[in-house]
Structures are given as structure tokens and as C-alpha cells.
Simulated assay, not measured.
Amino acid sequence: MPAHILVTGSTRGIGAAIVEALAAKGARVVGHGRSDGPGVIGADLSQPVAADGLWDRALEALDGRVDVLVNNAGVFEGVAVDAPADEWQAAWSRTLQINLQASADLCRRAVLHFREREGGGRIVNIASRAAYRGDSPAHWHYAASKAGMVGMTKSIARGYAREEILAFAVCPGFVMTGMADDYLASRGGDKLLADIPLGRVAMPDEIASIATYLALEAPPSMTGAVLDANGASFVR
């Protein structure tokens, strides 16, 4: 029986690569984006009720069964420390809502669903190197949101392992997506690359291979694991 999987932020970059990798393994995947499309459910995760609506629609599309949730959707939007207070707070609210709160809402629904059906399930959260290393002066909120995602993942793993509900996180460094391209260009690509011993940023298919392993193959004893993929730019 193929695994039924919901992947958020699936229309480009890491998310699209994850969907492709999971489908290649025979999984039945429903994706998520800003608007509806083939195999994609549209939902604006900046809105507080959107995550619950997305879960309900995904459950319907997958015939009432979700085996794996992959939280990949996120934003990386800077705000200066000396920005006006209203801009500062709006940036924090938006980033935390999309990157952390919506992920938490989906994790909650997944845990409740897994417990109700008594068959367990898996959660894979795509966090960031920033959760441990921090980020630029304009991205406190991004680092905080990803650190929260890691803490949430560990809490789920510890709280529900006996019910066969497993949780994992992946912490990429820079990945060659549109979002990373813009950041590399804005910060001086060569200088940033010099900080990566591997000499290059990760490719989306590399992160997808890790997420696919965690979603489908990782042994239950790995629950709570946080896997780094940053070219040795941060080793802990």
C-alpha cells in the first residue's frame, strides 16, 4: 500500500524536489502552494485558519488517510533592526505564522489523526542551519522560527514515540533555490561560498533525498533526529 503524504510548499525548490523523490518511490503525494493546481492544494499559510483548511482538503484528497506530513513551506524575508516598530512586528508576525505556527497547526492535526487511526505516522519538518547557527542581522525572526521548529520536532518525538508517531527535522544550509539565489546575490556569493568547506550550496535533490528517507525508510529508533545538510559550514 503506497504511503499517503502531504508536502507543503511543494511548487518549487526543495518542496518540488521532495514531491518528485517521493513519487519516484511510489508514494501518493498531495502538494501545497499559493493556489490550486494539478496535485496541489492552494492555501495562504499567512492566514491563521489556512493550515486547518489545508489539512482537511488534503485528507479528503487522500481518501481519509495521511501517513506522512512534510512541513516545507516557509518565507525568508528580511527586516532591519531599525525599521519602524509596526514594520518590525509585522515581519515577525508573518514569518512566525508561516514558518512556525502553520507548521505547528499541521503537526497538531497530524498527531490527532495518527492517534485516532492508531497506526502511527511520520512528520518531517524542514528547518534550517539558522536554528543552531543563527542568521543575518536582518533575519532574527527567520532563525527564531526555525529554532522553534526544531524544538517542536523534538517535543513531538519525545511525546508520542510510544504511539508510533515519529518526528524528524532536516536543517539545510543554503540550497540552490530561487530564495537562496536572491540571498547569495545580495550578500556577495563568493564570500558566502568561502564559508562552506564543500565549496558549494546544496542542491534541492540532496535535501529531498534526506526527507524521503525520513518519510519512508528511517528506522523508528531515529525519531527525534535532526539531520544537517550544510556542506560543513556549521558542524555541531
Rank of each mutant, 00 (worst) to 15 (best):
R133F: 02
I196K: 04
L100P: 03
Q101R: 14
F168L: 01
D44Y: 05
R200K: 07
D44C: 09
E20V: 14
A130D: 06
V68P: 03
S221P: 00
A127K: 03
A180G: 15
A232H: 11
E60I: 13
E87H: 14
V79C: 14
A215Q: 06
V124Q: 02
S93I: 00
G15I: 13
V235Q: 09
G173P: 02
K146E: 11
A180S: 13
A180I: 00
A85M: 11
V29E: 00
G26M: 10
D205L: 10
A51T: 04
G119I: 07
L106F: 14
G231V: 08
V70G: 05
A138H: 13
G134L: 11
D195I: 10
S93P: 02
D228Q: 07
P204E: 11
V19D: 11
E116M: 10
V29K: 08
R34Q: 13
Y183I: 00
Y160Q: 00
H4C: 12
A90S: 12
E77K: 12
G42F: 13
G39L: 12
T212L: 00
G151V: 04
I18H: 06
A144K: 04
G9T: 05
D52M: 07
A23G: 10
A215I: 08
A144S: 12
A138S: 15
L59A: 12
G189M: 09
G159H: 06
R200G: 02
A167K: 03
M1F: 01
A147Y: 10
L96A: 06
R57D: 05
R236N: 15
P84S: 07
W55S: 05
A185G: 09
A16D: 11
L62I: 08
Y142L: 08
H32F: 12
S103D: 05
V79I: 13
L184M: 15
T212I: 01
N99D: 03
E60Q: 15
G119P: 05
G78A: 15
G39N: 07
H32C: 10
H139C: 08
G134E: 06
L166V: 03
P204W: 13
V201R: 02
E116Y: 07
R117N: 10
A147I: 09
A180D: 01
G31T: 10
R115P: 02
K154I: 13
G26K: 08
A211M: 01
G33E: 01
R236C: 13
V7A: 11
G120A: 10
P48L: 00
G9N: 06
H32I: 12
G188S: 07
Q47R: 14
R94S: 12
V150P: 00
L62V: 08
V70H: 07
P204C: 13
D63S: 13
L22D: 03
G119K: 13
E163S: 11
K25S: 13
R57N: 05
R34G: 14
M1L: 12
I156N: 01
Q101E: 11
R129P: 01
L45W: 06
N99F: 03
R12K: 14
L59W: 05
L193P: 00
S155E: 08
I123F: 02
S186A: 15
D52K: 12
E118Q: 15
C171T: 09
V75Q: 05
V49H: 06
R94H: 12
V49Y: 04
R133Q: 14
I41C: 00
L59C: 10
K25C: 11
S233Y: 10
R122W: 06
G151N: 07
L100M: 02
A102R: 00
P219L: 15
S35V: 15
T11P: 02
